[in-house]
Design a protein around this nucleic acid. Structure first.
Lengths: 277, 277
DNA sequence: ACTACCATCCCAAATATTGAAACGGCACCC
DNA sequence: GGGTGCCGTTTCAATATTTGGGATGGTAGT
């Protein structure tokens, strides 16, 4: 589907027609081909391929074509161009990204609540939604403990290895859990916790029962978090929030205490979204 | 229904064939027409036009064409589609927006410094760059005084009416000041301060001399700020930072004291960018 | 029930895109 | 400093791609 799961094949290798690209593999584009190509180009640049040649080979288009598309993108502000230096994502994307965030009602509605939560706990609070096999951070209120977390709005993390992600998985059918677990292990940054699938499933079931999820350094070393799902009027899970902190401030006892707290905030947001009881 | 009559400054002198669209007026598109149309479509949705009909008339394309482009955009995650409800900007844009932010070296380099500044002053600190006649917020460290400002990363504000913007104007040729001032008055949210151009110019000149700029509630009522420009290795101004706070915490005396402080941080960032002396 | 409007699909016409070639220049590497 | 490779840009004929009218089935809202 949206599999842009390549890491960095980058330079060269191909010689003649077909290129290495999966771009052609997805030749059964949905609607307007040219448009899809242009978007692929954007993602190319997003991945850091900043030269014309690299982009051409990656997309399977000739130089002049690539150049023409690049011109449009630059003219519209979607890309920034430093003449003999390369292309980078432009200001228009920053703007649209911000707009996209604004258009999510959840982000606005939850703002107050999670700010309040962050203030009361002094910890970092995240708001995230499901996006494929990942969790997409929609908002972040930094903690006031001095130490900053690496997370950023707009970032993505493997679903199954974050507290936020686990809370989102509450709402998914159980048969999807295992594939997500596997995929997360693949996406996992460093040598992740060797938590077996059996243990994982048991823990997730317990979390569902309990109403909130824990993350014990599975995603980021030294960081623990507690997370709970947010529901909308239909009762479905549409987002999740989490409280995260360095392990030093997150003893097991505190995590247990935080459970009902985050649950309360999550439910409050849910009620703001029209959820009942 | 929902109007398609957005305010546009462009020359709408021609007007003959279809719709009011300026899209056709810009028929001298730079590169690939289809791509440009798709981007225009994105901005349409960004402005809140969420139905097919509205978009069609705005762009001057027929329904089937519009629909085809929308399909592509949805399939790639750039738009989100709720079947009989409309289109909204999608997660892909949130991602790319975040990436675009990351790709700006300034944002990363300045992070530490402005975090530090925010901590020391307890106020909100902004980082912004020039974008046309507006200032584009690249980063924001919220203050710890409880009161939150409305600003958000990715947002734009009229250049001439913000501290950040004035600091950015330091680097612009003086003949551009007046048009920017005029444009800002046009963009100004509410009935802004009736600061005459003459007074404005004098104050800006003083600010240049001084090395930092003030904003006395010109942009947001009840908010004052102090701002200073950031330079790169070429000596040109590439960004600006500001300290903002509710007027209660921003007596004139404090603003004067804050001048050298923000100047020091701005210069420190500049040095990190390669600026010398 | 009835009337919009929306979501989709099809296909011939023609428009807009493509890619090859070419040229001047900049950059980086010997 | 000379060489070499990539970049930026333009041209043009061939054609693949987009276009849009029309037609259908469905969903909301009245």
């Amino acid at each position: 589907m949206d599999g842009n799961s390549l890491l960095d094949d980058d330079t060269d290798t191909d010689t003649d027609t077909d290129t290495d690209a999966d771009a052609l593999a997805a030749s059964k584009v949905v609607g307007t081909q040219t448009l899809v190509r242009g978007l692929a180009l954007l993602e190319c640049v997003a991945e850091g391929i900043s030269n014309v040649k690299g982009i051409s080979t990656r997309l399977g288009t000739r130089r002049s074509t690539t150049h023409r598309m690049l011109s449009s993108l630059v003219a519209e502000g979607y890309l920034h161009h430093v003449p003999h230096r390369g292309y980078t994502l432009g200001p228009q994307l920053i703007r649209l990204g911000a707009r996209a965030l604004e258009q999510r009602p959840i982000a606005g509605i939850a703002r107050r609540q999670i700010e309040d939560l962050a203030r009361r706990t002094s910890d970092t609070v995240h708001l995230g939604v499901l996006d494929g096999a990942t969790v997409l951070y929609l908002d972040k209120i930094p903690g006031t403990r001095g130490l900053e977390m690496r997370s950023r709005i707009g970032q993505q993390m493997p679903l199954a290895l974050t507290g936020l992600g686990k809370a989102l998985m509450f709402g998914l059918p159980r048969e999807r859990w295992h594939p997500l677990y596997e995929e997360a292990l693949g996406l996992a940054s460093r040598d992740a916790r060797p938590l077996s699938w059996l243990d994982y499933e048991v823990q997730l079931l317990e979390a569902v029962e309990r109403g909130w999820a824990y993350d014990l350094e599975e995603n980021e070393l030294g960081i623990r978090c507690v997370a709970a799902p947010v529901r909308d009027i239909s009762g479905g899970i549409v987002a999740a929030i989490s409280i995260a902190s360095p392990i030093f401030y997150m003893a097991e006892a505190r995590m247990r205490d935080l459970g009902p707290v985050i649950r309360a905030t999550a439910d409050a947001i849910s009620r703001d979204l029209g959820w009942e009881s």
